[in-house]
């Protein structure tokens, strides 16, 4: 699909609308909408942008939209993607802000979102399966993956893990000439 501001806006409008159940779902949605349907970025780039986005302050999904928008059409692209990303939550929240107590009481709504929550398990499985081989390509990256996974499951704060990874990456570059790429 042609890369222009209108298409970028529509793509992120759609991504934001499907984004239910927490920010991590942005990866499978971006893989499906931007890699498979539109062929604008690669699945490897999606993982890289997510990795960068979580290191920056603010909302991961918004930072990812900015990075991808920038890649597609520079600063204008970033403004467009953020606008597309912000519009659905803005409109919906403004519409329902005064009805929240009634919405929570709609019959079956808790069952619906109970199911959606379970879908996140499968979506995470699909997302990780897709980028697994790209992220883990030698002993060191596998070791680091296992270490972070164990620590995260032991409830170590993700912020600590991200900052440690940043530091470890810098130390590694200091002592190693070249890391494997691609």
């Amino acid at each position: 699909m042609e890369i222009n501001l209108k298409n970028i806006f529509i793509a992120f409008l759609k991504i934001s609308t499907i984004l239910l159940g927490g920010g991590y779902v942005i990866i499978p949605i971006a893989q499906s909408e931007l890699v498979e349907k539109r062929n604008w970025v690669t699945k490897e780039e999606i993982l890289d942008y997510y990795s960068i986005a979580q290191c920056l302050g603010g909302i991961i999904a918004v930072n990812m939209a900015i990075l991808i928008g920038c890649k597609l059409k520079g600063t204008k692209g970033a403004l467009t993607s953020v606008l597309g990303m912000s519009l659905p939550p803005f409109l919906i929240i403004v519409l329902i802000a005064n009805l929240i107590e009634k919405i929570v009481q709609i019959p079956n709504i808790d069952s619906f979102f109970w199911g959606v929550n379970l879908a996140v398990v499968i979506l995470i499985y699909l997302a990780v399966k897709e980028v697994f081989l790209y992220a883990l390509k030698d002993i060191l990256s596998v070791f680091w993956f296992v270490l972070i996974l164990v620590l995260a499951c032991l409830k170590v704060n993700p912020v600590v893990l991200i900052l440690s990874s940043l530091a470890f990456g810098l130390i590694l570059a200091r002592f190693k000439k070249e890391v494997k790429d691609e």
Binding site: G22, Y24, D48, C55, A127, V131, I148, L149, G169, K180
Partner: peptide, 19 residues
């Protein structure tokens, strides 16, 4: 390059841990 190389397995591990 090195920071990204380390951040990729970190991202995978953090997302997987949420799952």
């Amino acid at each position: 390059k090195s920071v990204l190389y380390i951040l990729r397995p970190t991202s995978c591990a953090l997302i997987l841990s949420v799952g």
